[in-house]
Nucleic acid binder design. Sequence first.
RNA 1: GGACGGGUGGGUGAGUGGCUAAAACCAGCAGACUGUAAAUCUGCCGCUCCUUGCGGGCUACGGAGGUUCGAAUCCUCCCCCGUCCA
Length: 316
Amino acid sequence: MNFPARLVAIVGPTASGKSALGIRLAGRLGGEVVVCDSTQVYRYFDIGTAKVPPGEQRGIAHHLVDIVEPGEVFTAGEYRRRAIEVLEHLKQRRRVPILTVGTGLYLRALLEGLADAPGRSEELRDRLRKRASERGEGYLHRLLGRLDPAAAGRIGERDTQKVIRAIEICVLARKSATEVYRAGRPGLPGFEAVKVGLQPPRDELYRRIDRRVEAMVAGGWVDEVRRLLKRGIAASAKPFEFIGYPELARHLRGELSLEKAIPAIQQATRQYAKRQLTWFRKERDVEWFAGFGDDVEVQASVESYVTSLGITAVKQ
RNA sequence: GGACGGGUGGGUGAGUGGCUAAAACCAGCAGACUGUAAAUCUGCCGCUCCUUGCGGGCUACGGAGGUUCGAAUCCUCCCCCGUCCA
């Protein structure tokens, strides 16, 4: 009853074929896909976030997609809570969770847990930002220096986003963020993760990204953005920060031609893929595969790796 | 054919005699990142050598000459691009 259940986490940069591999593994192992992606949680933003359309899911359940409205703020902490619910549920039904991971922070939040720190406070953040604009550059960092010198030391002065979060923890927890972190992280009790990484050759990945962006546009991405705007979703909503959406919104306002928007989106996507690789490279205990997840040979070797660890097909 | 304007490192583009291997931005590469993470931030970014140092050498601002102690910056000629006049 209480022995740890296994889960498989597929990590890799965007367009490396995680979804295809996830569906394939889920099909073979009697599993269900649990998406670990900070953008696919948002409803209505479908094409640009590369959600797998229902028609291509091959009957495999996909969890943690379309769970929040565009106007909502979603966080790593919230992801962890929601994911744990899903995992417990799958465990009860003896289904193997197959995580397709684009957002490294979310995987870490799930597997290692987050410190017992206070959540976001929009009010506090607004106050901090206001004071910062009055007192000028460096104010927030100096404030953090007083509250938590160690944190100020490791966070760059210009990294306002992280400086604010650290101050937020200090103020709300009434002790330094460093101290809060020192208490450790809870991990993910009851589960054991098998991590599989996709790392196709960089040049091939970049080519595939370029082609995929073109395919997305050909597949109606611009219309999707038009509908989102028409629907009244504020251009300031969070998902409108995701790659491609700002560019296409500008295009629809007549400020950017499609001929210029497409290369810009391709470039931003390549840069994103690079950042993902930087993150995943230092992820521990990942078994790496040097190809794309939709390649049948890669699929076969991942499958045999996973089954060799004792994760085998459950009788249907 | 003539008159102007311009040719700078992968790109855009500053620089009008030494402080310039050459601002800034972009691209690229590497990295950091415990509640915005498709975010945010950092470093490197001509070649090369080593005793890795605010170190040495070489190459570089369209081309070739020249002036000067010293030139991306001044002069001459040539080539190319743009605009205008014929």
